[in-house]
Design a protein around this nucleic acid. Sequence first.
DNA 1: CTACGGTTTCCAGTTACTGGAAGGTCAAGT
DNA 2: ACTTGACCTTCCAGTAACTGGAAACCGTAG
Lengths: 132, 132
Amino acid sequence: MNIGTAAEKSGLPPKTIRYYEDIGLLRPDRADNGYRDYSSADVHRLRFLQRSRSLGFSVEECRQLLSLYGDKERESADVKAIAEAKLAEIARKLVELAGLRDMLRHLADHCNGDDRPDCPIIDGLAGHGTVQ
Amino acid sequence: MNIGTAAEKSGLPPKTIRYYEDIGLLRPDRADNGYRDYSSADVHRLRFLQRSRSLGFSVEECRQLLSLYGDKERESADVKAIAEAKLAEIARKLVELAGLRDMLRHLADHCNGDDRPDCPIIDGLAGHGTVQ
DNA sequence: CTACGGTTTCCAGTTACTGGAAGGTCAAGT
DNA sequence: ACTTGACCTTCCAGTAACTGGAAACCGTAG
C-alpha cells in the first residue's frame, strides 16, 4: 500500500511517516517504481506511534517499546522490566488525565455566566501536593 | 519564591519555566535583585502546564486552556465550547492510554521466555479500526 | 498525449525546549 | 572583610520532532 493510504489508516501525515523511516523506526518495502510499499504490520507500527506520541511518550520511548516485539534476542527479564516501568508511567498519566478531565468538567458545568470569574478552580488546576 | 523552588514544586526545569515566560504563558513578579518571584498561583499554572504538556497537549492548547480562567471578558458559551472540545479529546486519550496499558500488561505477564517472540500482540498494538 | 493527483528527494523553517558561557546575588564559613 | 558555592540573570547556540515548499518523477483518466 502507498504512503497516502498508510497515512489515512494510521492517522499520521505522510511527512511524519517518512520522517519515522529516516530515523529508523520503520523499514517499508519499495515497489519497482520507487514508491514506498507499506504492509499491515507497518500500519500497526504507525498507529502505535501515532497513539503513544500523542500521549506524550518520546520517540525514543516509542522506539524502545517497538523493540520489545521486534528483537527476538532480547532477554525476557529485560522486556518485563521495561514494560513494567512504562506501565507505572501510564498509571500516572491516567490519574493526571482524569484530574484534568474533572477540572474541565467542573469548569464547563459550574462556571457559567457571572459565576465563572469567581470560581477558584485554579486551586484544583493541577491537583494537590508537590512533585518529588 | 525563587525559580528553583517553583521548579521543584511544579516538576518543570528552570529553563522551561523561563521559556514559558518568554512566550507569554506566565508573568511572575521580579524582586529588587532582579530575581523572578513566583506566587502560588504561578506554581499552579506551572503544574498545569507540566501535566498537560506531558499528556500530549500543545503549548497553544495549554495557552487556550489557561486563558479560560484568566480572561474575565470571555463569553461563557465560548468557555464552555472550548472546555467541551477538550473533554472529548481527553476521553479519547483515556481510552488510548488504557489500551496501551492493557497491551503492555499482556506483554509483561504472558510473553515470557520462549513464548514471547510468537505472541501476536502486535495485532493489538494500536487497537483496531481505522482513523477517520 | 496532456492533465492532475500522488509520490520522490532535498533543504529550509518551526515548535518546544535544552545546554553552556559569562556574569551578578546571597548566605555560610573563616 | 573575604571567599566559596549554590543560586540567579541574559544571551546565543544546539537538539528533537516535525512541517512546508520546490523540483521532478509516476500513473491513470480523458
